[in-house]
Design a protein around this nucleic acid. Structure first.
Lengths: 237, 237
DNA sequence: ACCTGAACACCGTTCAAGT
DNA sequence: ACCTGAACACCGTTCAAGT
């Protein structure tokens, strides 16, 4: 009759599993997320998870649902360019909160409802702005992974904190070798106004992200106002 | 004295290990590439590999070296825009030969010599075209993973061939449900001139790739001729 | 110098069993 | 209906040993 007392303090359910998985990935990294470790975190035996997610792939899909739902909803009464810009920058904020999300989003090919909702409303912004379905199609491809807030790191900005500190003399010698073999890389590394230090220091991601995003948005606008359309003739090449 | 006869038919070396790894990934997929399976393919015990690569991470770095070296060298005596365009399209050809390369290139953060050489010569094209180091810096970020030939798939073009064929009636019902819940997605899927079938059929990747690439290159050109420079004032936001 | 064998500490997932 | 325990077929990598 004391049976009720021995059930787990909180009954497991799909949402609790997904939240714990996101939390674990945030905190320990995506490579540390295993079914076994996640089960341990939830105080449960590994096989208990399989009543709530079919397998690890479905777990990852569920995690994507959770984080994509964190992206701000579309701003109402906003013209297309500002609306897309705001939305994409919101996606980027989400991505910064979940560093593992980039690789997981890229590895997933299945489209869960939250992902489809995000695509649907982003496409809707261009259509509402008067873009043809044709142009919108190509524009979505061109926007590409940038629509998820992805930014390109040319060099790894954050060195592994677990790595031993580098001797300044060694560092200087390395820079010297870089300068000889890769003069152009060194030139643009030190050129950016926001970063007068060395390659290893990384760039202002936000500036780089907005630079590329606005370049694309301006390009889309130019095509739109000029009445661009994909011509079958030029496409046979 | 017959000792020479019992050594492996072909002595293992780093290059043979890397070539076999690339071949295995090409043929069986990156998820099938394990140290154990690779060793088996080479007719050797798993631990034999560790004399030639330090660990699996270094194996992946080595594989990147092999495939990046396959990208065509820069075309001589070519103005920047055509030169960059040719190079990037060559990278894309390499990527099509090695479908696993995308995820591996994205997961790597270390820069091996072949990767640095590729960056160096691409940067050199912009500088030779008269771009400032400042603009070139941002342009390289904006080009982003497209410089490796990456294209964005909005929907998974190629369905898993191992999956059972879908009943046409089921397929039609799915399309109906899609049309109701995601009308915009359906609209742009059917709109592109080159693809009048359904979402599942995928797009003309080459057209989409060149569309986005040329949009970026045209944008770069416009900034260049207008004497663009990153202003510290606008960057404090 | 290069390869081997056995072992360790992990994986995802199955199956049959418990309550 | 939900959780458990034992087992299977894998991983990457170590260490000490062989030739």
């Amino acid at each position: 009759m004391a049976q009720v007392l021995v059930v787990p303090r909180v009954r497991l359910n799909r949402d609790r599993v997904l939240q714990a998985a996101v939390g674990l990935a945030d905190q320990a990294g995506i490579e540390a997320l295993s079914m076994r470790r996640l089960a341990e975190e939830l105080g449960v035996v590994p096989m208990a998870l399989y009543k709530h997610v079919a397998n690890k792939d479905e777990l990852l899909d569920g995690m994507v649902e959770v984080i994509v739902a964190e992206i701000d909803p579309p701003a109402p009464d906003t013209e297309w360019k500002a609306a897309v810009r705001l939305r994409v920058l919101s996606a980027r904020q989400m991505l910064l909160r979940h560093p593992w999300a980039r690789s997981v989003l890229e590895s997933r090919t299945t489209h869960t409802p939250a992902v489809l909702d995000y695509l649907e409303s982003t496409i809707g912004m261009f259509l509402a702005g008067g873009f043809s379905a044709d142009l919108t199609h190509h524009v979505m491809h061109a926007l590409g992974s940038r629509m998820w807030g992805f930014t390109q790191e040319l060099f790894d900005a954050s060195a592994d904190p677990a790595r031993p500190p580098v001797d300044p003399a060694v560092q200087a010698a390395r820079m010297q070798a870089m300068a000889e073999r890769y003069p152009h890389i060194l030139q643009i590394s030190t050129a950016a106004a926001h970063d007068d230090s060395v390659v290893a220091h990384g760039c202002d991601d936000r500036f780089e992200f907005e630079f590329a995003l606005d370049l694309l948005l301006d390009g889309f606008e130019r095509l739109h106002v000029s009445g661009w359309s994909s011509s079958p003739v030029t496409r046979t090449a």
